[in-house]
Lab assay of single mutants.
Amino acid sequence: SIKEIEKEEIIKVLKEVNFNKKLASEILGIPLRTLYKRLKEYGI
């Protein structure tokens, strides 16, 4: 599903940037606030 793909992509990017959420949100092209929402939604 799209949610699974998105979750995997978020985890992959977070690992690449050593869990720097600000940098991860910039790489993913989403606002930091949205990233936090996704992390909560996906239980990351």
Rank of each mutant, 00 (worst) to 15 (best):
L35G: 00
L28A: 01
G29D: 05
V13N: 01
I10M: 11
N18I: 03
K37F: 08
S25F: 02
I27L: 12
L32H: 02
I44R: 05
K7M: 15
E6F: 08
N18D: 09
E4A: 10
E4G: 09
K12M: 09
S1E: 13
N18Y: 08
E16V: 09
I11Q: 06
K37W: 09
K21V: 15
E41F: 08
L39W: 03
L23M: 12
E41C: 06
I44V: 07
I30H: 01
Y36Q: 12
K12Q: 10
E41A: 08
V17T: 10
K3H: 12
F19M: 07
I2L: 14
E4S: 08
I5V: 12
E41Y: 08
L32K: 02
E8K: 11
I27R: 13
I27K: 11
I30R: 01
L39Y: 02
K37Q: 15
N18E: 07
E16K: 13
N20S: 07
E26P: 02
L23C: 06
K7V: 10
R38C: 07
I11R: 06
E4L: 11
I10R: 00
N20C: 07
V17K: 03
K21L: 15
L14W: 04
K7S: 05
K3V: 11
K15L: 12
L14H: 01
L35R: 00
E8R: 13
A24N: 00
I11L: 14
I44C: 06
I2V: 13
I30N: 00
K12S: 09
I2P: 13
L28M: 06
K21Y: 15
R38E: 03
P31N: 10
S1C: 12
E9V: 13
A24K: 00
A24H: 00
Y42F: 13
E41P: 02
E26D: 10
E26C: 06
L35T: 00
V13H: 02
I27C: 04
L23F: 06
S25N: 01
K37V: 08
G29F: 03
V13E: 01
V13F: 03
E9N: 15
L28D: 00
L32R: 03
E6M: 11
L28G: 00
L14Y: 05
G43W: 04
E9G: 10
E41D: 09
K37I: 11
Y36W: 09
K40I: 13
L39S: 02
K40P: 02
E9T: 14
K15T: 12
V17Q: 05
I10Y: 05
I5C: 08
K40Q: 12
T34N: 06
L39D: 00
K37D: 14
K3L: 11
L28R: 01
I11T: 06
K40T: 08
N18R: 10
E41M: 09
N20I: 04
E8Q: 14
R33F: 09
L35Y: 01
F19A: 03
T34H: 07
R33L: 12
K22G: 05
K15H: 11
N20F: 04
A24C: 06
L14R: 00
K15W: 11
E26K: 14
P31L: 05
L23Y: 06
N20D: 12
E8C: 10
E16G: 11
I27G: 02
G29W: 02
Y42T: 03
E8S: 12
I27V: 11
L23N: 04
E6D: 11
I10S: 02
G29A: 06
R38P: 01
I11A: 05
K3D: 12
K37M: 13
I2M: 13
N18H: 10
E9F: 15
A24S: 02
K40S: 09
K40A: 12
F19T: 02
E6Y: 09
N18M: 10
K12P: 01
L14F: 04
I44E: 04
